[in-house]
Design a binder for these strands. Sequence first.
DNA 1: GATGTAAGATAGTAATTAATTACTATCTTT
DNA 2: AAAGATAGTAATTAATTACTATCTTACATC
Lengths: 202, 202
Amino acid sequence: MEHNPRHLPADERRAVTIEAVVELAAEQNPSEITTASIAKRMKLTQGALFRHFPSKKAIWKAVMEWVAERLLARTDKAEQTAPTPLAALESVFMAHIDFIARHPGVPRMIFGELQSASDTPAKLMVRTLIDNYKKRLQALIEKGKSRGDLALEVDSAAAATLFIGTVQGLVIQSMLDGGVKRLRAEAPAVFAIYMRGIRSAP
Amino acid sequence: MEHNPRHLPADERRAVTIEAVVELAAEQNPSEITTASIAKRMKLTQGALFRHFPSKKAIWKAVMEWVAERLLARTDKAEQTAPTPLAALESVFMAHIDFIARHPGVPRMIFGELQSASDTPAKLMVRTLIDNYKKRLQALIEKGKSRGDLALEVDSAAAATLFIGTVQGLVIQSMLDGGVKRLRAEAPAVFAIYMRGIRSAP
DNA sequence: GATGTAAGATAGTAATTAATTACTATCTTT
DNA sequence: AAAGATAGTAATTAATTACTATCTTACATC
């Protein structure tokens, strides 16, 4: 059991920093997270952060990389353990919801990055993350069609967009009111309607 | 034709201020909009703003009131001119998309308000706006059910949530890439899947 | 045309911010 | 154990922020 070791190797310090930011984002507006508040959470002086990151933007970039990595790993696993494309869609959806419920700061940060009109490094991370995600969904949907589980008349690209949108909409509304509890509670019923929208007639 | 009249009555000045903020939000991260940048856009000195608003928060509140008013007016009209509940849903959806396409800064501001963990006055505005919106949607959906157009097995609350989520998801993804053009282009196909999800079997 | 008031300009303030600096403590390697 | 490398501290910096105090101008009303 270690008690706040004062000195950490650089890579561990970076990892701890990322965790601190994700934690803080769950508690407050990410745009109001200062280098001072990050340092305080880590019991470190503010200046020390800049020994490990060249700038604040670099911190955000590292955090978004962490998010992309973990989210993709989680949904990937969900997808691959499911028996059918249809089951995979549901499994991925729930894994996504679960990931956000465990890290409520993540959507906060992502939406924050979206708002900047210019292309920050962090925003680029988000874009490629969602791009890849969407491609995988689209492939799943196509597979579901060829198996006869999904309706051929459904636009696959639009279906992938709506899949992600369904998550985003749920998240936004639970951010407004109800929080993580509401997110988990409403997810199944909302996903059921989505499924009804793409499934082939019985 | 008026040429930037230097002096404006207070109420007009407030209106112009709101327009300036909505414009600016379309171009940059709303959290980075400063009182100085608002004033510059209006060709006014920064201090003069505080003759008309007691604080920056008051400006945001006024802007959100403007948004709520206009959006509700637009969707209300769309709803009331439609012949059936089903047609009304589509009409409201498209009116909503059109409103955002005309004012791309609006979702940016709303998402920005969502991120603050505490309940700012502006965040409260957003919450009641969406609450009212959702209630109206739910009523429409119930009406559609009783007419036999919508499936009884569909959860009305979840359907209303997903309706809003569909808009939000579309908006977010167009903010990431493609902008207003993509928003308008993808809206119909995505809405079609939503409709398929709630409509009764033919 | 004089006059009172509403609106704007000018020039500040105090607080907060990311980043930098000079220095110190701690670990690692030989 | 010496020496170099790594990590952290404390204090400071320049820039930016919302907000304010004081002075000046424009306009409506008589």
